[in-house]
Every structure is written in C-alpha cells, then in structure tokens.
C-alpha cells in the first residue's frame, strides 16, 4: 500500500475529519490554522540543514515529505496556485532539497537531499476558477515536481471541499 502524506487547508472540522477518515493509516497534516510564514533566513539550508529554524508545526514538514511515497495536496485554488495556508507550509520546506545547484536539461535546480522521489497529487477546489488559473495550476504543479525531484504529478479541480472528499473517497485504494 502506498505510504501517503496528505496536506490540506480544509478549515471545517467535519470535512477535515472526513478527510482523515478517508486516509486512515496515512499521515494527514492540516495547514490550518496557518503555520508561521518563512522569514527567508535560509537556516533550513545553512544552520539546521533539512529543518526549519522556526518552532511550530511547520518545522519538520521537509522530513515528513521525505518519509512518504505520495504527497496529496488538497488546497483552495488562489490565483492559480495553492492557498496562503498551504503555501506557508511549502515555503518552510525548502530544506527538503540542498542549497547546491545542478542542471536538469540546462536549467538550474537544487540537488536532492533525500533519495526518495515522491509523487505529487494536487486537488484544487474553488467556485470561480478561471481557465487561466487552471492552466497556471497545472504548470505550477509540474514546476514543483521538477524542483522537488518528484517522479510524477497529477492535478484535479473540484468545486468545493466536499467534492474533493467525494473524489478522494471514490479513488481510495
């Protein structure tokens, strides 16, 4: 069975509980309430490698990511990207890669800290998504995968958190 990490921004307790039930046995991380935002200190590279220097729930998300084979992101779509709560977690996780550069097809990326290459699955929700926002989200997911050294990515769109739950419950293996 695939070892999954689910990170979500669903604030409603009943819906968040239903998500945890769908993924019983996996790791579920709620990005809500928000963790502190990244302060741009690069401490996760140069002071406490792989770990954010700020002390809260977001400190060890990089190591948590490395311990799973698939990362499922359930996020409100905001201007074609993840929500501020999810982004705060991601921004605090760049210790997942090393500061050192290497080239992939002539383009600069950060070298991998861990051997494992997880798959990334994005499920975005929102009522008034534009086509342009959806296109941005797909490109963003592909870029994230490349920069985090992932192996595959998938992007889906739903109208509401409940629709995300229905989709995830139907696909649960």
């Amino acid at each position: 069975m695939t070892n999954r990490l689910i990170v979500h921004d669903i604030a409603d307790k009943a819906e968040a509980g239903a998500l945890a039930e769908i993924f019983a046995g996996d790791t579920v991380f709620s990005a809500t309430p928000a963790v502190h935002h990244c302060v741009g200190c690069f401490g996760c590279w140069l002071k406490t490698p792989g770990r954010c220097v700020l002390k809260d729930r977001g400190s060890d998300f990089a190591a948590m990511t490395a311990a799973h084979e698939e990362i499922v992101i359930v996020s409100r779509l905001v201007f074609g990207g993840v929500s501020p709560d999810i982004k705060a977690v991601f921004d605090r996780s760049i210790g997942y890669v090393l500061p050192f550069f290497y080239k992939v097809s002539g383009e600069t990326h950060h070298a991998k800290r861990y051997d494992r290459s997880p798959g990334f699955r994005y499920i975005f929700y929102g009522e008034d998504m534009t086509d342009r926002e959806k296109q941005t989200a797909k490109k963003l997911a592909a870029a994230n995968m490349l920069n985090l050294g992932g192996v595959a990515h998938e992007v889906e769109f739903c109208e509401s958190p409940q629709d995300c739950l229905d989709l995830l419950a139907a696909r649960r293996d």
Binding site: A34, H37, C38, G81, K87, A88, D91, I94, A143
Partner: peptide, 17 residues
C-alpha cells in the same frame, strides 16, 4: 522573490485576504 515556484505566502495572504 520566487518561493517554491510561486509568491511568498505572506504576500499571497495579503493579496488573497
């Protein structure tokens, strides 16, 4: 600055909220 292929979360929050 570019943060994880997007905009820093505190700026995103300002624009979103």
């Amino acid at each position: 600055p570019l943060y994880v292929d997007g905009i820093p979360s505190h700026l995103l929050r300002l624009l979103d909220e």
